[in-house]
Design a protein around this nucleic acid. Structure first.
Length: 280
DNA sequence: ATGGCACGAGCATCGTGA
């Protein structure tokens, strides 16, 4: 199975580019973030013509997540346990949920397409929301793995955290001033590791950014950051045979500001075409 | 000190992004 994650920054603007990428790179499951539309506005036809079915969770012009898959999706969910909500002047437990998570099971793999809240600034209520949202996600994942340690679980998407200084090529993002690099955010990210979910791309690709701001020539100067990740449980991590970051998708006409991150998975079925059969 | 760019709603400009 080839599993990809991509913050597309409006699917209606970039549907051709997105589907072309999925077909060209032989993607089986594509988790998308920031689709920026409701289900009735989603361009299903282009995906279906290319052989994908799509699950969509979008409430308005903000956020929005989707999963396109060549194989059937089951157990579709639009929120994880205790996922907090957010709205201006509405920070209590009754705050409305946003469209930032979509879970589905494909071929026994539980996949979550995730768009972690940005945080906006270190003093903003959105920053607290971000930390609470991450903690609820971690607890949900930990609980799922406690119930079933053999579960191949993948948390993929835009985490809006720069885990290491080596992931930060943008001189405008500075610890103590900026979000994404604060100790609390990094701690929230590393807590997934303690829950049994490892970054499965980094061991294969220690370098490489996934986002460059549209402004101030950030891409030509390569002043990007690594904020898009595939976190996998041990059963999933053990099946990873490759990883790619498609930097070229930041080029050309109307690119997203993020690029796709892809992992190749081989669970030993031998029938998915990923690996040749070896006969003695 | 501030803007720079891009997107969607909706028709002037604002909220959002990181």
């Amino acid at each position: 199975m080839r599993l990809a994650t991509w913050n597309v920054n409006s699917i209606r603007t970039r549907v051709r580019r997105t589907v072309d990428f999925a077909v060209r790179e032989d993607i089986d499951v594509l988790a998308m973030q920031e689709i920026k539309c409701k289900p009735e506005q989603f361009p299903y036809a282009q995906f279906e013509e290319a052989g994908y079915q799509v699950e969509v969770h979008g409430l308005n012009q903000w956020n929005g997540v989707a999963i396109a898959s060549r194989l059937p999706m089951t157990d579709v969910s639009t929120a994880f346990d205790a996922m907090p909500g957010f709205a201006k002047g509405h920070e209590g437990p009754d705050a409305p949920l946003e469209a930032r998570a979509l879970g589905a099971t494909v071929d026994g793999v539980q996949i979550w397409s995730l768009y972690v809240p940005n945080g906006r600034s270190l003093e903003d209520p959105h920053y607290t929301y971000k930390l609470h949202w991450l903690e609820a996600l971690r607890q949900h994942a930990a609980s799922a793995l406690q119930k079933n340690p053999n579960l191949p679980l993948a948390l993929v998407g835009d985490f809006n955290i720069i885990p290491f200084d080596s992931d930060n090529g943008d001189p405008d993002i500075v610890e103590g001033v900026s979000t994404h690099v604060s100790p609390a955010e990094r701690q929230a990210f590393f807590a997934f590791q303690d829950a049994g979910l490892a970054d499965v791309v980094r061991p294969l690709l220690p370098e490489g950014f996934t986002y460059w701001d549209y402004q101030r020539l950030k891409f030509p100067r390569n002043e990007g950051v690594r904020i898009d990740f595939v976190l996998g449980s041990s059963p999933l991590a053990g099946a990873v045979t490759g990883a790619s970051i498609y930097r070229d998708e930041r080029k050309g006409e109307q690119p997203s500001d993020h690029v796709p991150v892809v992992v190749d998975l081989d669970f030993g079925g031998g029938d998915d075409g990923d690996m040749p059969m070896i006969f003695a």
